[in-house]
Amino acid sequence: MRAITKIKRLAAVLLTMVLGFGLVACTDAAASSSGKNGSFRTVDEIKQNGTINIGVFSDKNPFGYVDENGKYQGYDVYFAERIGKDLGVKVNFVSTEAANRIEYLQTGKVDIILANFTVTKERQEEVDFALPYMNVALGVVSRNDKVITSLDNWNKNDSMIVISGTTAETYLIENYPDIPLQKFDSYATAKEAFENGTSVAWANDNTEVIAFSLQNPGYTVGIPSLGSSDTIAPAVTKGNTTLADWINGEIEGLEAEQFFHADYDATLTATYGSEYKESLVVEGGKVK
């Protein structure tokens, strides 16, 4: 009797293990079939289908957010809508978080990511970027009573807020490994925690920390530009050249009407004024 139950139990354990491995094997297969080998939709397929899926942020005012009427708004969204219009298709906005952006492209959940996506060498190995449409660097915001202007001589008891999957996280891990990071998985929770005083500073794209300090009195961007200056560009699944080429043509074509200046006026002026217009906007994919 005893021996039989033992064998049964062993069998159960083994079965669980096998199922576990099977699950992993499945994700493995899924990743290789739809990701790197490319299960994406070409421009023609998107046109035929009549709907394009574009991944944007839903909580990052004023770049990509959902307003009080449930409508997507912001600098990225303004461009996304123009893409839909010029392609002649409906735009289906897919809400994304920073750490999901590459996954969403590799698994074919979206056709384009337009979510404040900074171009980096590591990311270029995983996805294809089109021409840039905005400049960006990193910035650090802190409270007025204790403005942080340098990351050297960091007090080890203080933590810095970052959002998981952002360039700020990568930069700090590589360049300041001793700074304790408090990681959050969304912009909204990071903002909430920072306002609650969980950490002394918050590192993110400088556009975002500047926007935060302008919208919330009591905070100062002590470090307005950290690390190298980068660009923000639309991204498509690796190998989806027809779509990338189409977006490049679109961005170049929109230069004549100064589309991104109009985009800035419509979506960013309320937050930044016109002070940052020339330094932020990239027109026609040409970085000055």
Binding site: I102, E103, S164, G165, T166, E169, K183, D185
Partner: peptide, 15 residues
Amino acid sequence: MFTAKDLIGLYYKTT
């Protein structure tokens, strides 16, 4: 869970 999500976001090694 967060460690896995964070690593995927940082280094894109999903599998």
